[in-house]
Amino acid sequence: MNSRIDSCQFKTISRRGLLKLTPVAVLGAFAIPQLQKPLLKGGLRFSDWASTRLFRSGHLAPTFTDSDLTPFEKFPINDYDVDDPEVDLDKWTLAVSGSVQKPGDYTLAQIHALPKVTQNTRHVCVEGWDVIGRFGGVRLSDFLKTIGADPTARFISVECADDYYESIDIATAMHPQSLLCYEMYGQPLTREHGAPLRLSIPTTIGYKQAKYLTHLKVSHVLEKVGYWEDQGYPEFYGL
């Protein structure tokens, strides 16, 4: 009994020293400006890593019946800047570049020619709200095949008429529910919802669903991630 107490006490003393040092060391590390951001970002990076491991193209985001739909007029319109960047719909094309066999400008008719997919899925905003909408368009994976995207590429990045920009990892882009969306609720996209073409990716968060697309680039390296991500939001947004 005595020896047990002694050994306990010995451990207590040695750990006491550690305990006193550890919080100081951790808080001290956070106090160094150069270390602040990498340390804070560590949690998000680990989340992104964990969710990339978890993500499978066979796992579908929940889909809903028509009676679950949020009425179109109650589907929120979120912008970082303007509701309508005044896209000239007649002259609109999607500029494709990067690691693709067929770069160039693609018209809406060329995109319409691909098999159409319609799905009732959630649109989850990082702010905390979510709605269920009816989205129609073509699979991003079909479009990537059409443009001859390099299968070893890692990212798809898009730019928008309102200077918004976004990127997604290739696994998310190849997911069967990831759409280049030109229709909502059976009608062509309205200007506030991103006419003529937006992303609709139900496996990720709302700020990834870029509107008013103008450019699409396939790449191995990202120069910039996305408008919100570059201000500190998660990049993959799995978790």
Binding site: G43, L44, F46, S47, V126, Y233
Partner: peptide
């Protein structure tokens, strides 16, 4: 919002 999210995910994992 940005730092809030950093901190939330970091401390959640911890």
């Amino acid at each position: 919002r940005g730092p809030g999210r950093y901190l939330h995910f970091l401390s959640a994992w911890v």
